[in-house]
C-alpha cells in the first residue's frame, strides 16, 4: 500500500526495495506479489496503477527467475490483459495506464523470447486490434 500510495506522486524507492526483498525472502513471494500487483494495476486510480507498474518493473529487474516464471503465466498475463480490454477494466483504466501495460508486455516479448505464453498473449492483443502497430 505504501509503495503504491496514489496520494504521493514521487516513487517511494525505499518501500519498493523492501517489497522486492520480501518477494525474494518468501517461498510463495512471487505468486502473492503478482496477485497484489495485478489488483493495484487494475485500480481505477491512475496514480495507484502507475506506481504498481513501477513496482512490477522493479521486481522484474530484482527478483530473478522465480518471479519471471510466475509473471509469464497466463494467470498473471490475463490480469494485465483485462486492463486493456473494454470488456473488463479497460473502461475504467486511463490511456496512460493502458499504454504502459502495453509497453510492459511488449518489452517482455523482447527480454524473454523463450516465454511462449508472453508471445501468445501479445500476438492475441495484436490480432484483436487492442495493440495497433
Amino acid at each position: 500500500d505504501e509503495a503504491t500510495d496514489p496520494s504521493i506522486s514521487e516513487e517511494n524507492w525505499e518501500c519498493i526495495q523492501r517489497f522486492c526483498a520480501q518477494v525474494n525472502a518468501a517461498a510463495e513471494g512471487p505468486l502473492f506479489a503478482l496477485r497484489l500487483l495485478a489488483h493495484k494495476i487494475q485500480s481505477p486510480q491512475e496514480g495507484e496503477a502507475l506506481h504498481a507498474l513501477t513496482v512490477l518493473e522493479t521486481c522484474v529487474n530484482n527478483c530473478g527467475e522465480r518471479f519471471h516464471s510466475e509473471m509469464a503465466k497466463f494467470r498473471f498475463l490475463n490480469e494485465l490483459i483485462k486492463v486493456l480490454s473494454p470488456k473488463y477494466y479497460g473502461i475504467w483504466s486511463s490511456e496512460k495506464v493502458k499504454s504502459r501495460v502495453t509497453e510492459v508486455i511488449f518489452s517482455w516479448t523482447v527480454w524473454f523470447p523463450q516465454e511462449v505464453k508472453i508471445q501468445d498473449a501479445y500476438q492475441m492483443l495484436k490480432k484483436q486490434g487492442i495493440v495497433k502497430g
Binding site: 503465466k73 497466463f74 494467470r75 490475463n78 483485462k82 505464453k117 501468445d120 498473449a121
Partner: peptide
C-alpha cells in the same frame, strides 16, 4: 509446514 500449491495455469483469456 508444507503447504499445497496448485501450479496449474489458466488458459489465455478470450477477450
Amino acid at each position: 509446514t508444507a503447504s499445497f500449491h496448485d501450479d496449474s495455469d489458466e488458459d489465455l483469456l478470450n477477450i
